[in-house]
Design a protein around this nucleic acid. Sequence first.
DNA 1: TGTTAGCACTCTATCACCTTGAGTGCTAAC
DNA 2: GTTAGCACTCAAGGTGATAGAGTGCTAACA
Lengths: 344, 344
Amino acid sequence: MEMDSRKAKILEAVVLDYIETAEPVGSRTISKKYDLGVSSATIRNEMADLEEMGLIEQPHTSAGRVPSEAGYRYYVDYLMNKSDIKEEAKQLITGQIRAKREQVGEVLRDSMKMLAEVTNCTTVMMLDDKHGTTLKLLQLLPVEPGKALMVIIMEDDKIENRFLEIPESMTKEDLDLVSMMINQNLRGLKVDDWQRNILENIFQNLTNQRQVVDCALEMLSSILGIQNKDKKIYLGGGLNMLSQPEFKDVTKVKNLLESLEQEEVLTQIMAADDNETGITVKIGAESGVDQVKDCSVIIANYKVKGETVGKVGLIGPTRMDYATAVSMLNTMALTLEEAYQESE
Amino acid sequence: MEMDSRKAKILEAVVLDYIETAEPVGSRTISKKYDLGVSSATIRNEMADLEEMGLIEQPHTSAGRVPSEAGYRYYVDYLMNKSDIKEEAKQLITGQIRAKREQVGEVLRDSMKMLAEVTNCTTVMMLDDKHGTTLKLLQLLPVEPGKALMVIIMEDDKIENRFLEIPESMTKEDLDLVSMMINQNLRGLKVDDWQRNILENIFQNLTNQRQVVDCALEMLSSILGIQNKDKKIYLGGGLNMLSQPEFKDVTKVKNLLESLEQEEVLTQIMAADDNETGITVKIGAESGVDQVKDCSVIIANYKVKGETVGKVGLIGPTRMDYATAVSMLNTMALTLEEAYQESE
DNA sequence: TGTTAGCACTCTATCACCTTGAGTGCTAAC
DNA sequence: GTTAGCACTCAAGGTGATAGAGTGCTAACA
């Protein structure tokens, strides 16, 4: 069976109409609504072919046609108009990101929420564990006798705070010294690269503060090393799923949303991007994650200096507006890259 | 119409059975399941009275009875066994809170989640704006040329981080000086108490760093003063609602959950506690918040040194297990108070 | 006087059944 | 190759009958 241009147009019509209405699309609808210049009977014949090719399917005999996963795939790969995007929505996102950059984290959260609203999907933001795992600056601050605050600034300006118990006798100067030693020796290193002799060096110079250093190092390593355990993941617009007609069944929604609250599942989903550059679209079961086998996932990497620093993902029903979703996500990733570049 | 002890027992049976089964309760069910020593006919007569008193109602003629809001009210006020609580669940919560206290914020979030799970309700934690609005310690840290990190520790050990642009020429010593001046003058003060002469004093001593100080003060005041704008609210177990049979309708759930994502609504809900001490139970429309008129809300204050520092709330269907909910919430509030007390 | 058994009554939930309409596939004519 | 026409299929929606849960009332009972 050959795929000619008329078949393609009919497939496109089926996809677009189904995305819009969420109802199976009949031959009559297509012949009336989309101007193909042929009658519904002809379209019926073509649709029978498309069904044979596995691109569309019928929920039951007397219903219209619905795109299959393969059909969506064909649409996304060959038919979709990739630049089709609402300019205002685009502005909204870029504006959002460029504004108030001083509040670390807030910006990401807000942008994710906005992207979710515009696309009516759920968004995931994930910072890559390759990045942010090296130390930029560590400082111990005396808070009150016996208590200090450890402030850790990562290479990507993320910040962690931990309280630390210290001997009452330690002064601000002692803490400064400890901070300095740790900074000098560990700045820019990943936890894997800590070497015995570096650590020995720190301890040797700080034998009397050994207990504090030990505790601080332990916290530090847990933050830098086991990043994936408390890797920052932002989720936006989880409730958007509830408006989709495919999720009118409560238990289905519940299972899905509960899955999305589990970091393992999110990590698995986001790991599904195969081409390192640009945008990956996974339709239905393609993601390989059982919990979202009825959803499509779109993932964008964003890079700084050629290295992937994070991913933005969009999760929605298979019947989602791929054109808008892809271009919005693309905009988002580009603006984030730009913002990162500037702030470096 | 008098409320005698048998009527009370029947009302209690209706409430308990309805809480358990979510189905209207018939006279036969009560006579068989709850050992009242009278026949279903007698119970029917009593139920007719209870209905006349407005404490129970019938969805339709041939259905059993369901407690009215007034019925729940009566149950909560006079019948409920307040110490009825599963000891293990209690242990779970207190254990959770007492553990790993060094990770500020995390503990609260986790405890909320757990409380939500145990009660199968949604939980809200809200830190009162009276508290946490005074400065304990401020420190400016040099990050890289032209950039500093402002670390702010509040009186309740909450921490805020903000990046600050500074003149490239400023040294660590300059920043220390600025930090010290701000600390000396503003520690322990609320933003309302900042006085012109105090600020003048800071500026006079730091004329050459005026720009930086200005910027820092602005951020500081926005953090301390307009606390309610970014007041920390933790929400836990929002999805629990989805398991309740009263929320099998998706649009209903969606509206509710979307309301609960709005801080104004949460603030309104949590403002509904009238008795300053102990626990408030608002049943259905009693909360006065339209969005949760089909839910009940239970609110607990927790205090340190006689002053309310925060509230914990529980939101669930009107048909909720009040006894367990109240005592769990109570446990939670007490343990939090205890934890705060210790850490002060 | 309070309690109970018995019975008629009411209303919902459920199922089978039918009708309707959307949509198809096939065929014959263009 | 295209199209009009027609028989066919199937889900959705409406109707009517039935079963079952629960009530209220009445008369008998202790």
